[in-house]
Design a protein around this nucleic acid. Structure first.
Length: 514
RNA sequence: GGCGCUGUAGCCAAGUGGCUAAGGCAGCGGAUUGCAAAUCCGCCACCGUGGGUUCGACUCCCACCAGCGCCUCCA
């Protein structure tokens, strides 16, 4: 039984969808005005794993991630660069797509763009005016929060306490907390025609319009970063629920934010410390404001994408993540265990792990009783994994099962001496294979180990390297036979110095470039 | 000031009202190995502090301390 934490109720609730067997999921995507940084990857990676797990659990899932391609920040940035907003948005969208694809996020079904949803957005705003929840004022349109009795229910705020947007818009609003559905364009700004004159959508309306367009008036999961609870999601709820008279989403899921813990200093609460001109500290803390928030593409050059994905999934999604490169490097070390096992499996079985058939759904993965001690243990481990994931997508707990599973499989290969080709009885290989299939099955539910990591080609391989290596290995084998260990070790140590590791096994010596 | 989150081993990080408190990194023993590498086995936590509830709390409640988020169009 899957249980999901709902920000709306602040409890874990049993997961029940609007339509049996189907899930509609909306994740607030990026405003494409700058290259994405690692913080932008948190939501996509987590919700990618969530979608995979839901699909694995038998649901048919439609996942929508919006692209905000009109917005004040975009206008500012395009002015600063002297580049048309549309071109800037296009470039930054491409950057975002490259990054999430590298992270293995390829299960998003729709990427609606704000600029391509104008008719629906305008109609939505008009609907709200018609129903008395919004009003036009000098080319702007505002949502009237005083008309919404439920306003504040997501973030649990009292209306009185809200300050609202400041600036020149304030005097056109009836209440300080009213927010813009439509903003009139200043001369030279990108604009779309509307019943209220040329302008652009407010920040929140696009998500209401797009989610309605693709997922309907009530859908199952609405996700985003914790920072979006207020005002963004609060306002989306206000718009959609006032417009439709029914709940917008059943489950509101919010991921913790990434923090650059070791690169920046401490950041005190705003009211507790006056922050006397300490801009650096103000810029610190949350990574999106941090100066150290380098483009994600840079990070990808230094670490394998899968290690970053693993890192993001190793913490529970609702907790903040402390980001540091040292941590990613640590995770990378840990992952070697898996890659080594995958190679070991291929060496022993002669089959490719990545080509291995594995169950795609938990239903399809049934083991009968009497499958032997190894598979009994494997199935028990799989149960632990499912239990963790069923509990609000506890990927951190699930990853522990991955490690335990590999240990089980390694131990079996050790105990049965499967490195020795003579000991590879078909029945034993079969056991190992079934166990490995389960590993692949649950790793796949997290979106891990789906594709071979690209071999970094440190040498232009024309076959020469391989030939030289086999010659060296042969020479060393002869030396070892003659108990000339000095010579053997000299070869191994010498190769180690230039980054080539030799490993002796019953089946022969293998080499790998570090 | 308002709303809220977090505090588990050297580091990261799951989890539970009572059985030996996951897993990873680092470290230390051992098996294996000619020696290594890899693998396996073992060791390494009185769960922020002080109270309370309870037969019993790390797990529930209160207070405090520390760190953090939002209340300002950040994912």
């Amino acid at each position: 039984m899957l249980r999901v934490y709902n920000t709306l109720t602040k409890t874990k609730e049993p997961f029940e969808t609007v339509e049996p067997g189907r899930v509609g999921m909306y994740l607030c995507g990026p405003t494409v005005y700058k290259p994405s940084h690692i913080g932008h990857m948190v939501g996509p990676v987590i919700f990618d794993a969530i979608k995979r797990y839901l699909v694995y659990s038998g649901y048919q899932v439609t996942w929508v991630v919006n692209i905000t391609d009109v917005d004040d920040k975009l206008i500012n940035e395009s002015n600063a660069r002297g580049m048309p907003m549309a071109k800037l948005a296009e470039e930054m969208t491409a950057d975002y797509m490259r990054n999430i694809t590298a992270m293995g996020v390829d299960a998003i079904d729709h990427f609606p763009r704000c600029t391509a949803t104008m008719p629906e957005i305008i109609r939505f705003a008009q609907d709200l005016i018609d129903k008395g929840f919004a009003y036009a004022a000098k080319g702007d349109v505002y949502f009237d929060v005083s008309k919404d009795k439920d306003y504040g229910k997501l973030s649990r705020r009292e209306l009185e306490a809200m300050q609202g947007e400041g600036g020149g818009m304030a005097e056109r609003k009836r209440n300080a907390a009213d927010f813009a559905l439509w903003k009139s364009a200043k001369p030279g700004e990108p604009a779309w025609d509307s019943p209220w004159g040329p302008g652009r959508p407010g920040w929140h309306i696009e998500c209401s319009a797009m989610s309605k367009k693709i997922l309907g008036e009530t859908f199952d999961i609405h996700g985003g970063g914790l920072d979006l609870v207020f005002p963004h999601h609060e306002n989306e709820i206000a718009q959609s629920e006032c417009c439709h008279g029914r709940p917008m989403a059943r489950y509101w899921m919010h991921n913790g934010l990434m923090q650059a813990s070791d690169e920046v200093g401490k950041l005190g609460g705003r009211s507790t410390k006056p922050m006397e001109g300490d801009l650096a500290a103000q810029e610190a803390g949350k990574i999106s404001k941090s100066k150290g928030s380098a483009p994600f593409s840079e990070l990808l050059k230094r670490f394998p994408a899968e290690a970053i994905r693993f890192f993001l999934l190793s913490t529970h999604y609702r907790r903040p993540i402390d980001y540091s490169e040292a941590r990613i490097a640590e995770v990378q070390t840990g992952m070697e265990t898996f890659y080594r096992f995958l190679k070991r499996f291929e060496r022993i079985s002669g089959e490719s792990f990545y080509a291995l058939d594995a169950p795609r759904t938990r239903k399809a993965s049934d083991f009968g009783p009497g499958d032997g001690p190894l598979l009994q243990a494997v199935v028990a481990e799989r149960e632990k994994f499912l239990e963790a994931m069923d509990d609000d997508f506890n990927t951190g707990g699930g990853i522990a099962s991955l490690f335990d599973l590999v240990r089980l499989l390694n131990k079996y290969a050790d105990d049965e001496k499967l490195e020795d080709p003579a000991k590879r009885e078909p029945a034993k290989l079969h056991q190992l294979k079934r166990g490995t299939q389960v590993f692949k099955e649950i790793a796949g539910a997290l979106g891990l180990f789906r594709k071979p990591v690209e071999e970094k080609s440190t040498v232009a391989d024309d076959g020469l390297t391989a030939k030289l290596m086999s010659l060296l290995i042969e020479l060393r084998a002869e030396a070892r036979k003659k108990k000339d260990f000095a010579a053997a070790d000299r070869i191994r140590n010498g190769l180690a110095e230039i980054g080539v590791i030799l490993e002796d096994r019953p089946s022969g010596t293998e080499w790998s470039a570090k």
